[in-house]
């Protein structure tokens, strides 16, 4: 399936899950330069009132964005992408959480040559990103 001017609004483009464990949080901290201890230090996280170590909101947003651009094939087709961080993603140790990402066509603008893709990002059935939307160029 491709995303073109003929693609109908409401079409599901992809649905995938990504496992997030503490090792991935450390990897993202190093890759992004965001070393806030709430993302790797249980003692610190609980001291500031969190239920435990939480994922970087930007990691969750990044995972969802990567799922979309991997589906598109060409990351350069993404024009814009935004979201709100509505619910923290607690990452257990030991163990992992499954972040589920689903992309659905929200609007198609044939004249502009773009589509809006609405991303639903959830953990255990609860959405963790609000109004996660991307605008992408049509194929």
């Amino acid at each position: 399936m491709s995303l073109s001017a003929q693609t109908e609004v409401g079409t599901e483009l992809f649905s995938t899950t990504v496992a997030v464990d503490r090792a991935r949080l450390v990897r993202y901290a190093g890759a992004s330069g965001d070393f806030n201890p709430i993302h790797w230090n249980e003692r610190f996280a609980t001291e500031v009132g969190l239920p435990g170590v939480i994922a970087h909101g930007m990691l969750t947003m990044g995972i969802a964005g990567a799922a979309l651009t991997d589906w598109l094939g060409d990351p350069g087709r993404l024009v814009s992408y935004g979201c709100r961080f509505t619910r923290p993603v607690v990452v257990p140790d030991p163990g992992e959480v499954e972040v589920a990402v689903r992309g659905v066509v929200g609007a198609v603008d044939a004249e502009a040559g773009t589509a809006r893709v609405d991303l639903t990002v959830s953990v255990d059935g609860a959405t963790v990103l609000g109004k996660a939307q991307a605008h992408v160029r049509l194929a």
Partner: peptide, 14 residues
Amino acid sequence: AEFADAVGATSPLH
């Protein structure tokens, strides 16, 4: 490459 690995972006273009 580091950032792509961290967010699970697998496109060869990265």
